[in-house]
Design a protein around this nucleic acid. Structure first.
Length: 417
RNA sequence: GCGGAUGUAGUUCAGUCGGUAGAGCACCAGAUUGUGGCUCUGGUUGUCGUGGGUUCGAGUCCCAUCAUUCGCCCCA
């Protein structure tokens, strides 16, 4: 029989790696709580229309990358490719906006996209994100970015860039699209094949094409910031000055557009040079249209998501190997199988105060001490014939050349230094 | 979905011109029968990613397939 392998693009997080995930998750939770955000957990799968309507029918995510299947009741279900649409579904369904004028939520979870795996891109991947719901004002955009920056800082990532742009409200964007399409159509012959195809479907995406001839053409293209109406402009300017006032640095990049349909006004992205071609480790923006798209009341919202695998790639380049061997305080060492009962009793004495393990393979004293040494155990609690006869243990301090012989087990806890 | 590279013990890798596999580390066991690290000695481990083909003979050559990886695309 062949051994079974994990699915392509999925990864086991092994015991010596889980430590760094725990750090990352703990940091995300601390920052979120300290800003007054509470966790929302939604199911891993949803009705397909949550994403086809929420993420947008024209996007690659919906068209090519979703894990969609029919269940036994012949209903089309989809493994969530991102969180925002499902979160909005839950907020609407559970009336979470009843209680608070502004609802602040965060999430940590796994997401699924059928893509070609490469560094920093898996088919099952993890994201941490937040959503600030029900404020139309630029101060909520600024709060979300401020939270993200503080998260990044707390992780001690200092080599990153915040790219910022506004794609305006619907009307500004419509006017801009018309101008952009007109310009690009006039230069159609010079565009890459991909971009010519996108001209009808999603012309904004041509702006961040990596094809060199596209880049040359786009240099002279009209700029969205020139098409913002008064409202959109005021919103964007306020976001910028709020960021300035708390000392957050950003680069305006008028070519930054997001891949998902629901964005409007502020869009932003975090990039790092440590990631190769998948250089964005986080991104977000405002999505005022999503609630009505999913059948809720018109509700403004803004949020971001970060790719946790990518964050860990950055952290490892900054800090080296973050794996940590597990720490054991004490090891109970019966020299013979007949002392196992006493060994278990000693273990039971220590459970509330120490990490403790007992030999389960009846190996020799020597083998057990070797393991104790390898694990960096502080106390080896040796139980041989002499000890067992007196209901006692010998405490051997591994780091020092020191032993306390024949300590009664009633006194053991008092005697551990 | 497209293009390039790679796949040999637990791990990192070597393996010539085709002749059915090796090293370091790790692991296990010993070095006058109750004591780890250092040293020494010995030992285990592989369907050579998988399936076909060529050949007297394939880790080596050919094809397919799976996986990893680097780009494209897309995104976090």
């Amino acid at each position: 029989m062949n051994a079974i392998q994990s699915i392509r693009g999925t990864k086991d997080i092994l015991p010596n790696e889980s430590h760094k995930w725990q750090i990352l998750e703990a940091t995300a939770r601390e920052i979120s709580s300290s800003f007054g955000y509470r966790e929302l957990r939604t199911p891993i799968f949803e009705k397909t229309e949550v994403f086809s309507r929420g993420v947008g029918d024209g996007t690659d995510i919906v068209n090519k990358e979703m894990y969609t299947f029919n269940d036994k009741g012949n209903e089309s279900l989809t493994l969530r490719p991102e969180q925002t649409a499902a979160l909005v579904r839950s907020v609407i369904q559970n009336n979470l906006l009843q209680e608070n004028p502004v609802t602040r939520l965060y999430y940590i979870g796994q997401y699924f996209r059928y893509e070609r795996p490469q560094k920093g891109r898996l088919r099952q991947f993890h994201q941490f994100g937040i959503e600030c719901i029900n404020s139309p004002y630029p101060e909520s955009d600024a709060e979300v970015i401020m939270l993200a920056i503080n998260f990044i800082k707390r992780l001690k990532i200092n080599d990153y860039r915040l790219l910022l742009n506004s794609i305006g409200n619907e009307e500004s964007r419509k006017n801009y699209k018309t101008a952009l399409v007109a310009f690009l159509t006039a230069n159609k012959d010079g565009l890459s094949e991909d971009s010519r195809n996108r001209l009808d479907i999603n012309p904004l995406r041509i702006l961040d094409s990596k094809a060199t001839n596209d880049i040359d053409i786009v240099k002279n293209a009209p700029i969205i910031l020139d098409f913002l109406d008064e409202e959109s402009q005021l919103h964007f300017n306020t976001v910028k000055s709020l960021l300035d006032s708390v000392g957050i640095k950003y680069d305006i990049n008028p070519l930054l557009v997001r891949g998902l349909d629901y964005y409007s006004h502020t869009v932003f992205e975090f990039q790092s040079t440590h990631l190769g071609s998948q250089d964005a480790f986080g991104g977000g923006g405002r999505y005022n249209g999503l609630f009505t798209e999913l059948g809720g009341k018109d509700t403004p919202a803004v949020g971001f998501a970060m790719g946790m695998e990518r964050l860990l790639l950055i952290l490892e380049q900054l800090n080296g190997d973050m794996n940590k061997q597990y720490q054991v305080d004490a090891m109970v060492i019966p020299t013979d199988a007949k002392h196992i009962e006493l060994a278990m009793q000693v273990h039971n004495l220590l459970v509330d105060s120490h990490t403790c393990i007992v030999e389960l393979n009846r190996r020799s004293l020597k083998a057990q001490l070797r393991e104790a040494n390898k694990l960096g155990v502080r106390y080896a609690l040796i139980i041989g014939d002499d000890e067992a006869n007196k209901n006692a243990v010998t405490i051997k301090y591994m780091a020092e050349e020191k032993e306390q012989k024949l300590i009664q087990i009633n006194d053991l806890l008092n005697n551990l230094e």
